[in-house]
Design a protein around this nucleic acid. Sequence first.
DNA 1: CGAACCATGTAACGTGTTACATGATTAG
DNA 2: CTAATCATGTAACACGTTACATGGTTCG
Lengths: 180, 180
Amino acid sequence: MSLPHAILTALLERPSAGLDLTRRFDRSIGYFWSASHQQIYRELGKLEAEGFIRALPAAQPTRGQKKSYEVLPAGRAELERWTAAAQDPKPHRDTLLLRLRAAAVVGTEGLEADLRRHLDLHRRQLAEYEEIEERDFPPGNDSAQARLQHLVLRAGIELETFWTQWLTEALEEFAGLPDS
Amino acid sequence: MSLPHAILTALLERPSAGLDLTRRFDRSIGYFWSASHQQIYRELGKLEAEGFIRALPAAQPTRGQKKSYEVLPAGRAELERWTAAAQDPKPHRDTLLLRLRAAAVVGTEGLEADLRRHLDLHRRQLAEYEEIEERDFPPGNDSAQARLQHLVLRAGIELETFWTQWLTEALEEFAGLPDS
DNA sequence: CGAACCATGTAACGTGTTACATGATTAG
DNA sequence: CTAATCATGTAACACGTTACATGGTTCG
């Protein structure tokens, strides 16, 4: 039950239509909660039915017509409730670690190339985050909102830093391993 | 398409019955790929139907009777194929980061207590991993299999270390924030 | 006008979660 | 024998993914 709350957050930051939201999920919020446009339309429908959001009057007819939504007071209340409610951390799922574990049993044949590819992808993501940090969080801005957003971005930066370091270590191990 | 391969890996390490697997997923493999017993039974059925595993002859009658499985050659081949195949990393999903982002909009009321709780949980998990490391990976054992397994465990240790540090930072930020 | 693209959706399926059902075994 | 527990499952639903459908707008 997180996607509806991700959408409420995005809509509070700025009322938007479905595809707008999809694009904004591709940046920012989507860095730690991705969603396809199909999911987003489905959730927008539910949120409207529950009275948490409403379509802006401007234009709302048939298919193919742009339709923007805004958050209603009940929606904001629900988001406040959800943000404050205790939630257990869910165990991470990581395919790459699973594959390493499998490789310990069936051999490492072919795995190294994909580790290199992942290392490259994580380096790019890290560079992207660091660019965002330079651009959006210059020193000195210490509004509560900016500090919280910066905290989230730093989590992303530190996680990507971890992965690049760990993958580098892993590749060093592979270099010293008997083939397959 | 990862759970079946997690199960194949576990069964190659040791043939087991459904509940055995469930318990082993609660430790070890489950640290980065959890699964409930319902999921596991469902997948065992599929894997058997596909000819990747088979029930051991010993005893296999009706309900309530223990039923152990072992991996067939086709199952091992499939696991080798999957391990070597290129796979894109999936974007992480993290509810806590999402809640921080929401808090930047609707206020931090009530969130701090849950951050403390998470910090405590991550510290415990870290301690558990470090115990496992001391017990299972004493210096000097450098078989290929041990080195790969150790690499996976170190990822777990470093991730938990990251979260404890980040949550500590986050709580310091909260201390300096205007309430709500 | 036609092609490309924008925007909103539907349908089918796979995976994960929750609640419950049933037979076998063990402890008191 | 009864209750608790072990072990295997079923059913219903929520969420995520993939493929496709349909109407509107823009540009050559």
